[in-house]
Design a protein around this nucleic acid. Structure first.
Length: 555
RNA sequence: GCGCCCGUGGCUCAGCUGGACAGAGCGUCUGACUACGGAUCAGAAGGUCGGGGGUUCGAAUCCCUCCGGGCGCACCA
């Protein structure tokens, strides 16, 4: 933990610890932690400060721990006990009121609770999905859509100025292949014999598009000049495919701020400008009639072609221009989310940025592993070539947006995601989405009930100190952790941690609710329990919103 | 062959900028409301963290090596 905790209680303790170390004229260890110890009996928090200082000071850790323990101001920190444990941990136990007295502050923050200033307004551009408009979005894209969008929400909540961007590959060979494939479908549907090009697209979606075209204007295109016809298929197909992509993403609750056209880079001469910049910096050379970028100078395995021997650009060339464009737009940091099948592309991209003269550290690439679909215990195989694949749209329609978003973000992106279609569809305790949502619905119901019985919540009537033990205290602690979860998840670019936290929060709340009658108690107690429930509801709403999942009032 | 990711209880995973006897969920077994929603809760069994070395006061976490799985190694995108 290289930075102070965000949790109000832990933060105060952290400051006290830092002060105590300072008093001894000792340095604050970079890797100092303040976390719950493994055993509950050991206290509420433990720090490894003495262990770390021991190395630096060359003194026995137990002695250092002892001195720190005595130096801590127990009263002002709300400590109940401070113990030193071998090999040099300092275990801290807080008075229950130290926790509960933080609750009014949390309540006062309202929906803003959990916001942290990790980003300090840093401008960050997150590019994700960016699927070619040549076919439907599949489940892999769905994962990046959900993860990317949630990550953006998370970063924004953590104090970054975030832009969500989709790069449209509307130039180049693939789009021509799409046009030719669409034309082939068009001809086939009109009874002509036509072949989809060898590397073309065989998906059903293009057949449907062709049919749509015929329904609208019949076979008039057949009479057109081939070039005009090709351009039409290209432009129209692109426009239609992008519309569908937007709709599909929308259905998953994913919105982009910028839809960036690759073609605009050509039109604005930016590809040439980028290559000129590289040339001026001496990073380009010619060989075998092709133009190469010396990416090996910046850590890549081999140099890469930017202009092919036939004079056309590789995919890489406009992509260099694209990243240059993003940097020139003033973003402090760029995040690209790629599928694992593109990870080999990262070194050259990074090299290109360095070759252009920018700090390659400004580019962060998140590599995500594949999604495997399971149904009836069997893997559902996907294949783009045969056109047999489960689309993002099918997935959303099958399991619903809520389930889809939760399941797609629940795992670390480093792990292949096994998506159990049956589980995602069940409305039972096996499905974690419902577990979390149910907690929220339950709280909403509780508040409705309170309204009816005239026990409306008034913060001034609550005696928070009554929440200082058992299940209630567990909920209090979970509530206080939220800002740190946000900070940690944002820092690690790991939205799945939020899923885990919300599940845990829902869990401790369910336990609390089950064991404690909330309404109809003595006023200060009912009010305190009601207040705690409100806080949990507030956090669930906040967290679920980040994940793009609704927090239902009833289910 | 080289590179990246993964290998944690029956299953799916968390934890991995090192911290004290490894955590969840599902599944299995045993229990709990004639008061706020049982889509809930309480409890039990189950793992020498793929194998082997090393670094360290301390390793699931770092390094080396081996084994297994996924992905990638284009003048395709």
């Amino acid at each position: 933990m290289a930075y102070a905790p965000q949790d109000p209680v832990r933060a105060a303790l952290w400051d006290g610890l830092v002060q105590a170390i300072g008093h001894q004229q000792w340095p604050i260890p970079e890797a100092m932690t303040l976390t719950p110890p493994p055993q509950e009996e050991q206290g509420d928090y433990a720090t490894n400060a003495a262990l770390l200082l021991a190395r630096e000071l060359r003194q026995p850790p137990m002695e250092i721990a002892q001195r720190l323990a005595t130096a801590l101001d127990r009263r002002s920190l709300g400590l109940a006990s401070v113990e030193v444990a071998p090999p040099g941990f300092i275990n801290l136990r807080l008075l229950p009121q130290t926790f509960t007295s933080a609750l009014p502050g949390v309540l006062a923050k309202g929906e803003a609770y959990g916001q942290v200033d990790l980003g300090q307004g840093e401008r960050i551009n997150v590019e994700f999905v960016s699927a070619n408009p040549t076919g439907d979005l599949h489940v892999g894209h769905a994962r990046w859509a959900a993860v990317g969008d949630s990550l953006c929400n998370l970063l924004a909540f953590a104090g970054y100025d975030v832009t969500r961007e989709y790069y449209i590959n509307d130039a180049g060979r693939q789009i021509d292949l799409m046009a030719d494939s669409l034309e082939a479908r068009y001809r086939q549907l009109l009874g002509q014999s036509a072949e989809i090009p060898p590397d073309g697209y065989h998906g059903e979606d293009l057949r449907a598009l062709a049919q749509e075209l015929i329904d609208r204007q019949g076979d008039v295109l057949l009479a057109e000049d081939p070039h005009v016809r090709h351009d039409f298929f290209k432009a129209w197909g692109l426009q239609r495919k992008m519309a569908v992509i937007r709709e599909d993403l929308e259905a998953l609750g994913v919105h982009f701020d910028v839809w960036f056209s690759e073609r605009s880079l050509y039109e604005g001469k930016e590809v040439e400008a980028a290559l000129d910049q590289l040339r001026r910096r001496g990073a380009l050379y010619e060989q075998d009639q092709a133009v190469w970028l010396r990416t090996t100078a910046y850590g890549d395995d081999k140099d890469r072609v930017v202009i092919k021997s036939d004079g056309s650009y590789t995919y890489f060339a406009p992509d260099i221009a694209y990243h240059r464009n993003k940097l020139e737009r003033g973003y402090d940091r760029l995040i690209d989310i790629f599928g694992a099948d593109h990870h080999g592309y990262v070194p050259r991209l990074r090299a290109a940025i360095a070759a252009l003269g920018y700090d390659a550290q400004r580019l962060e690439v998140l590599i995500g592993q594949v999604v495997r679909l399971f149904q009836d215990g069997q893997e559902v195989k996907m294949s783009k070539r045969t056109g047999r694949l489960v689309t993002l749209r099918e997935l959303t329609e099958l399991v619903g947006k809520e389930s889809a978003r939760y399941f797609l973000t629940m795992r670390s992106i480093n792990t292949a995601l096994d998506f159990d279609l049956d589980l995602a569809r069940t409305q039972s305790n096996a499905n974690p989405v419902y577990y979390v949502q149910y907690a929220h619905a339950r709280i909403a119901s509780l508040l409705r009930q309170a309204e009816q019985s005239g026990e409306t919540f008034h913060a001034s009537q609550a005696d928070w100190s009554l929440l200082g033990e058992g299940n209630a205290l567990a909920v209090v602690k979970a509530v206080l952790t939220y800002p740190d979860v946000i900070a940690e998840a944002a820092r690690a670019r790991a939205p799945h941690r939020l899923n885990a936290y919300l599940y845990e929060l829902a869990g401790v709340f369910h336990a609390f609710y089950n064991q404690n009658r909330i309404l109809g108690q003595a006023l200060p107690l009912t009010q305190a329990r009601l207040g705690l429930s409100i806080l949990v509801g507030q956090i669930l709403r906040s967290g679920l919103r980040i994940l793009g999942i609704t927090a239902p009032e009833q289910m």
